[in-house]
Simulated assay, not measured.
Amino acid sequence: MKRLKRAVRACALLLATLATVGIAAHGTAEAAAKKSFKLAYTVYIGFMPFSYMKSSGIMKKWADKYGIDVDLILANDYVGSVNQFIAGEIDAVGVASMDGLTMPAAGGVDTSVFLITDYSNGNDIVLSKTAKDVKELSGQEVYLLQYSVSHYLLNRALQKAGVDPAGVKTVNISDSEISAAFVSQDAMKHAVSWKPLTEDMLKVKGATKLFDSSGIPGEIMDVFIGKTETLKDNPDFAKAVLGAWYEALGILKAGGPKAEEMRAVMTSAMGTDAGGLQSQLDTTHFFYTPADAYAFLTAAENAKIWDSIRTFCFAQGLFGQGASSVDAIGIETADGTVLGDKNNIKMRINASFTKLAADGKL
């Protein structure tokens, strides 16, 4: 899954501004009348059930129930899909929760999480050819995609080990280059990345996993976001998506012939094999039921997670030059807690649709 790079922030903020102006100019009448919606997702294990939802007709069945059309789009470019969302070209997009905060929300787009799919439970890894403990990274260079969840994972690993993150130099490298470079370049000793990229990296002689996302359960969330106004004016869109999602997840959890069919679709969409798919499933915590998802979203711990995320993002300058403090952007969690400016809430965790699903009211 391609994660956020600083190089795209200026473009993202510009598109966010244009999108906001467009909304103000057209008002809410057009949004209220929508019957066709576009949802984009990229190749990542937490989003792959959408490929089955499309090919099996499950998404169409739920969309038909609400008298709407929902087009599921497998996007080639992660950042590009987020920019399309900001510009209003698509209605919802799958993101790492941190990117939802630093791109559309930080850019001024009132954004709501309406579905949580999973959290990384070992998919994201800090690894080294020479170090055997996170503490040994002090004073060293660590290669990663800067300002991404890899960067966040490294910071959290260092904090937990009692190491000042400022004492470690991060070196930016793209997700398309990091695996081959770690394998072939002796000078690259330490790195942070995610599956499946890390599978070859861990095969390098001496390579050791120092820390992974299972050490910070729930902090690297994968979610689907929509513009708050769109979801308010068109609740049937979110209901249809969640209805289809939990039907698909129920098939995957139950096992049997249908689950094998679903696994085959996911495997093909990811360009991997059965073993590769299982490896990623093993280190991904899916919320298989809406009740589990709702409990996670409304727990007091969820607000603490968002506080950790926003603190990292502000420290890295990802709120933009106009942000004078970590409180510049308001985040409203599902339990009603507001972090930051209550008059500038741009990220909202909306668990109402998950609650409807849990109560069997979709």
Rank of each mutant, 00 (worst) to 15 (best):
D335Q: 13
I345V: 15
L249G: 03
I345L: 12
N83S: 04
A291Y: 06
L249H: 07
R348L: 13
D91K: 04
L101K: 00
D282K: 12
A244W: 04
E229F: 02
L281P: 06
S36W: 03
K2W: 01
A131D: 11
V70P: 04
F37P: 04
L101N: 00
Y143R: 06
S51D: 10
T289G: 13
A92E: 08
A269H: 07
L137H: 03
M266A: 12
L137A: 11
V79I: 07
D282T: 06
A244T: 03
V134G: 02
Y152C: 00
I23K: 10
T17P: 00
T337W: 13
S81Y: 07
K203L: 14
T117P: 00
G317V: 08
E229K: 07
I23G: 10
K189L: 15
A303P: 05
K35Q: 14
S36A: 14
G162E: 12
A166I: 04
G206P: 09
I225K: 00
E30L: 09
A166Y: 09
N234M: 03
W245D: 00
Q316N: 09
P217Q: 14
S138T: 07
A12Q: 00
Q280N: 14
S324Y: 05
Q278V: 05
T283P: 07
M262W: 12
R156D: 05
I329G: 08
F50P: 03
L72T: 05
R3I: 10
Q280L: 13
F50W: 15
